[in-house]
Computed example of a mutant assay.
Amino acid sequence: MSSSAFTHVRAVLFDLDGTLIDSAPDLGAAADKLRTDRGLPSLPAQRYRPMAGAGARGMLSVAFDMDTTHPDFPALREEFFVNYEACIQQRTKVFDGVDALIDQLTRAGMAWGIVTNKAARFTNVLVGATPLFNTAGAVISGDTTPHSKPHPAPLLEAAKRLGIEPAHCIYVGDDERDIIAGQAAGMRTVAALYGYLGTQTAVHEWGAHAVIKSPIEVLKLISAP
């Protein structure tokens, strides 16, 4: 990665789950309740964690080895959503270093925003309950635009709301679809190694412009000469 890849940055956009917040414990608990309500044994939280970034699809794949084509998927997804709404703030917290990162971005006058595939009904609760996120100039959910990531539309909408050209934005995420979406939008991309990462392609194959091991490392990228 060349430091020149991160010159002229005017805005930083972030994925939410697995990048700004650690929501895996609540997502996993909501999915595991589906199992225990049916008399099935509980699964360890670490089974759910890698797939937390994939939302209901990921959680049901772990809980029941079920994909979206299964006839029971729609009903279980809605039940999962009900469970999740009931526990959405019980264990979720921002990752270490996120508060310092957002504080420094704000102090520096750097625009920033959130682009997530999470539905607005959940995004709004979490963002509204986290004072740290009040300075976000754009919050784009999975149902804000007609398409969700890996389509670039949500990222382009965020840039539009911030009034900044996509070429002057970077996007930070913990899933390959984040990198695909960011690059399709014409943004510089950063893979968050501390996130959930999924279980598919290895991170070094995603083609991100940079990788970070902690949130605060974003500051080193945007201060590159």
Rank of each mutant, 00 (worst) to 15 (best):
S3D: 14
V9G: 07
R10P: 09
L16A: 06
D17E: 10
D17P: 14
S23Q: 13
S23T: 15
D26A: 05
D26Y: 09
A30W: 12
A30D: 11
A30S: 11
A31E: 08
L34W: 08
R35M: 08
R35S: 05
R35I: 04
T36H: 11
L40P: 14
L43W: 12
Y48E: 00
P50R: 12
A54F: 12
A54D: 15
G55A: 00
A56R: 00
G58H: 08
M59L: 07
L60T: 11
V62I: 15
D67A: 10
P71R: 06
D72E: 14
D72F: 03
F73A: 01
E78L: 10
F80N: 12
V82H: 14
Y84M: 02
C87Y: 03
T92H: 04
K93C: 08
V94W: 02
A100M: 03
A100I: 03
L101K: 02
Q104V: 00
Q104W: 00
L105N: 07
G109V: 11
G109Y: 12
G109A: 10
G109F: 10
A111N: 11
I114S: 12
I114M: 05
V115N: 12
T116C: 10
T123A: 12
V125R: 13
V127T: 12
N134D: 15
A138Y: 11
S141K: 09
K149Y: 13
H151Y: 02
P154V: 04
A159F: 04
L162S: 04
I164E: 10
I164Y: 05
C169E: 04
G173A: 08
E176K: 03
E176L: 01
I180A: 00
A181V: 00
A184Q: 15
G186I: 03
G186Y: 04
R188E: 03
R188N: 04
T189Y: 01
T189Q: 01
A192C: 08
G195C: 06
L197H: 09
T201F: 02
A202G: 01
V203A: 09
H204K: 02
W206S: 00
K213Y: 05
E217Q: 15
V218W: 05
L219M: 13
P225T: 04
